[in-house]
Design a binder for these strands. Sequence first.
DNA 1: CTCGATTCGGAGAGCGCTCTCCAAGGGAGT
DNA 2: ACTCCCTTGGAGAGCGCTCTCCGAATCGAG
Lengths: 382, 382
Amino acid sequence: MISDGWRTASLLALASPGGRRALSARRFDTRGPTRDVTTDNARLPTLEDVARLAGVSRATVSRVINGIRNVNPELHEVVWNAVNATGYVANRAARSLVTRRTGTIALVVSDSESHDDDPFMSRFFSDPFFGRVVGGLMSALRPAGIQLALQLVGADQARGQLVGDLRQGQADGSVVLSLHPGDTLPQLLADAGLAGVVIGRPARPVPISHVDVANDRGAALAAEHLVSRGRRRVGMITGPIDVPASVDRSAGFRAAMARLGQSFVPSVIGNFTHESGERGMRELLADNPDLDGVFVANDLMAQGGLAALHELGRRVPDEIAVVGFDDSSAALAARPQLTTVRQPLEDMAAEAARLLMAHIDNPGRETAAVVFEPTLVVRASS
Amino acid sequence: MISDGWRTASLLALASPGGRRALSARRFDTRGPTRDVTTDNARLPTLEDVARLAGVSRATVSRVINGIRNVNPELHEVVWNAVNATGYVANRAARSLVTRRTGTIALVVSDSESHDDDPFMSRFFSDPFFGRVVGGLMSALRPAGIQLALQLVGADQARGQLVGDLRQGQADGSVVLSLHPGDTLPQLLADAGLAGVVIGRPARPVPISHVDVANDRGAALAAEHLVSRGRRRVGMITGPIDVPASVDRSAGFRAAMARLGQSFVPSVIGNFTHESGERGMRELLADNPDLDGVFVANDLMAQGGLAALHELGRRVPDEIAVVGFDDSSAALAARPQLTTVRQPLEDMAAEAARLLMAHIDNPGRETAAVVFEPTLVVRASS
DNA sequence: CTCGATTCGGAGAGCGCTCTCCAAGGGAGT
DNA sequence: ACTCCCTTGGAGAGCGCTCTCCGAATCGAG
């Protein structure tokens, strides 16, 4: 069907830069002076170019590239050769336009109450948390050829804007990282019928998929570890009582300790800051001077607790053992280094990405909650 | 080929809302079962819809929206009303296709030697650095309606891939954050003629714009501060000698100390890690026991240095003052908290974004280097 | 009152891709 | 041998937008 002569001819045509350049130049002449011709002389190859070189139609090249349906294996190879020869890469915008997919998902970092920029940034990016999430997302997204777009939303007004943009197709879906319990964003997303996956359980039940770590099981690991270290009088510094993760950690720890024989766990409530850990530890010891172990609901507070312990002259871990939660940078920075519960964040993020992709591919899919098991990282503080 | 009858029929169908819906439904019926019709019934308004509602042509609406040329003010308002009434938002893909702009810039985090994922992630995301950069970029990009896409590149092979994707128009340009001196990426970008701005001076001169902090001036600030605190025997722990920032800090510190009357500054070389700071401090004091001040080229090493000092029983800052560089999370975590030199990262990132946008708008623009002034953050260690 | 200059808005041609039709060819069944 | 089906590949119609033409309308000047 396809004559060798023709195919050769087309190859020759492509091989001669003159012809191409002329075509290209003419096209851009019509665009007026705003466009600098010098930057465009290297016009990118299109499907058409590949098709011509391969001696087939656009449709066939498209089929080969997208790996669909039935294409003669022989042609298949011819096409791929042409693709490689031209250095063709599909134009995202064009593809997007017709498929109605952007090939992008948004990582939405949502802070309900963005005061200044400062607390927002530092609380969130200050530790490996964000990096681990990004890494995990990437590991799942890259093989699928999907881009990650970063969106930071603070004020509520920005929230509505975001949903609008998302609806319009800025992204096919979003992974939400909420800094505040009871964030309205998950609900907004659900209401708008947008594909989304939340990392961390939302405070109120929302019809949206999420991935989470078994905070209660993590706390239980801490309890088991402390008891296995011979600690019999164990206390706890909890996080805020309106944060789901915090609630689960406290409940899980109490339940595990009860199971292990300590029915009452003296506790004080902190707010996840270094300072509140310091204060919490002082309070806790003031009321219960004979404690020999403390579980602290996050590393930052645990670090503060260690500082307090140091000033109080209590030796760690000899006199009193401390276990944190998160395995953040604070755990390594603390002296002694902190035994802590680690969330498999990379895995969680990767799962979030996969879940999101599943929702995107199948909008009717019902929401799911995937819960991961934490692990204990033993260091010098226990 | 296509009968006029058919064409007329479809036009009529388009004119009547009912017909449109029917057409639309038919279109999606043919897409097979993968597409859930319920999610598509809320088809997004197009320019065409707005134009029809406003009683003008697509072209006019487009002109109004893009704020160009001469449109009758009266019509202008009519069009905007129609836009608001329909809730129209321009389709990025379609616009992209014709403008050849994606409205996206890539934040490329490049690590020349990505061993495992671990050092990559932790070194980079472990501190506010990344967050501050992202925040700064966003502040400049959001007003311009430009998206930020995250790209992590490790292996060299990924580097080539990235350049390919970038060329093809994944993004209009990129801001490069290189973790390793002598990264090839800036050069690759320059060679490919892609718009790019590097944060931090590249090790070798590359024809690409960059923003940087005046590392030498920052070191001078540290020197002036130490001297003003009455320190007369000051030493230094430097960073690796192949990192430009490190070289500038050392040179700047030496020059400033010479100017202030201390012609020789005892130094040891570190590698920016906590451990090397610890070791460096011991070495430095072993050779120069009478030092009363030390400038350390980054906070992590300074933190290590403080730990060594603590173990050696030297009181900080009474007996010996320590000044770090970066104002990272380590500075706050250190005991005592670290006096350190802070880079105006947000401003630098914002400037990088503006510079990049300028390059995008004007491809012929010549490259620029913008250097920012650091500030000194005084805390308890000096 | 006519003519050129100028302003304004519409028509329509693409941007590069996907995917539905449809035609052509080849193999198997009757 | 003929029909029918199945496989394969081409033609071409859009996706929603921008922007160049060009025609119409308005205005001022001669």
